[in-house]
Write a protein that binds this DNA or RNA. Structure first.
Lengths: 228, 228
DNA sequence: CGTTCTATATTCGGCTACGAATATGACGGA
DNA sequence: TCCGTCATATTCGTAGCCGAATATAGAACG
């Protein structure tokens, strides 16, 4: 009945993973992860790191292996992975690889609120986005090529970057498609959206539909006492 | 010189966006967003909602429009969007639509640490993932069809879901490709990864490469005082 | 050998997120 | 009418996240 709550952050996982290579102190963990470019896929904040390690210690997933000092620099606490920690690490990794978790990308949120701006402005913004995505893609691909060709780093160490590139490419492609549908009016509703912004009035044609009615019903004009 | 820090959460943005339709109290905002299915693209937590609204008030982006009560139920504070709030809303939306922001999906983190498990187990887990993604995709597509055909909801109100579906599809496709490359050994390094897990020894062939050397150098065996 | 810059190593305080608790009204059935 | 349950509406405490500050050592430069 050991409680398995919390400590689910990617940072916590990366700490366990790194310690599975041998005892280390927190700063060293961060340095290694950075050196390997893992900070591109995992958000590493020094402020968080030390708290996370302490919490992992509380749960018995890591333990202090001793303290060391070089010269008169501040004392470093060296941690090691416990058996429980190794088990947790593997369990969480299995979970994370084996099943998708619901996430909330900022762009999805933005799309869901895009109605606030008029469609023609949105088209321009989406075009900006595509341009920037293309630049990022070119950069990321060049970096990958460099690491593989010059540094002779096996591709297997770079799958997470290849994944990121693939997703970025998919997004760019999808946005390009959306821009087209918006521009040529293929996408059902854009015309009404446009006139709605021009006139400020909710399209009469939509009023009739069921979803519009229940939507209105959600927002009763309630009597309000003016403040002050 | 008004400081424009913080309050960048999607939830805050959705509050502003919803209030741009008229004054409301926090619970009503949440209800509307839920009714419209926006809670699929934006994480809505009641605990957070009230804090967010208060902070928005502090920054002058929303203001209390009065208080209302129905019967003897707890008093509700009704908020309205200020002019500053409307401006902020549009600015942030432009930013969010127009430029990609770096994000850290859990799966990317998992991939970057996947070396902890042996490759053949990873292949199995990836297969699980693909299966689950396919199920989710079927469900999401069915839901979209239902809303468009039965409810006669214009597609424009559903772009965020279409985006989510497209991204999920892209991920499923990419993972399928990865599984193949892992299974048939096309991906450079899998063989060494496999023997490394079997023997516990870092492959000699890799030792020679520059990246492996600097990696070792990152982790000096430091003298450690045993504790207790 | 002073100065400045960067790398090392960690602490601290404030803010944010969010689960859980609270309190009331409305509705439906036995 | 009494009771259970659902919807309404909000507060509170805690746990975690993270920017910024702190302090020291070595390296580079003139």
């Amino acid at each position: 009945m050991t409680r398995r709550r919390g400590l689910t952050s990617p940072l916590a996982l990366s700490v366990l993973a790194t310690l599975s290579e041998g005892p280390m102190h927190p700063y060293e963990i961060a340095r290694l992860l950075r050196h390997r470019g893992k900070d591109q896929s995992i958000k590493i904040r020094y402020g968080s790191l030390y708290t996370v390690v302490q919490n992992l210690e509380k749960r018995g997933l890591v333990a202090t292996a001793g303290t060391a000092r070089a010269g008169r620099r501040p004392e470093r606490t060296v941690y090691r992975l416990t058996d429980d920690g190794q088990e947790e690490l593997e369990d969480r990794l299995r979970e994370l690889v084996g099943r998708p978790v619901k996430e909330y990308p900022a762009f999805e949120a933005a799309l869901s609120l895009a109605g606030v701006l008029p469609p023609d402005e949105i088209i321009g913004l989406l075009a900006d986005r595509v341009r920037l995505l293309d630049v990022e893609l070119a950069g990321a691909r060049a970096a990958l090529r460099e690491l593989i060709a010059e540094q002779r780093l096996p591709r297997i160490f770079l799958i997470e970057s290849e994944y990121a590139v693939a997703m970025k490419q998919a997004e760019a492609d999808w946005v390009r498609g959306l821009i087209e549908e918006l521009a040529d009016g293929t996408l059902e509703g854009v015309d009404h959206w446009r006139t709605w912004h021009r006139t400020g009035e909710f399209p009469a044609e939509w009023m009739e539909r069921g979803w519009a009615k229940t939507d209105r019903a959600m927002h009763p004009e309630s009597e309000v006492d003016e403040p002050g």
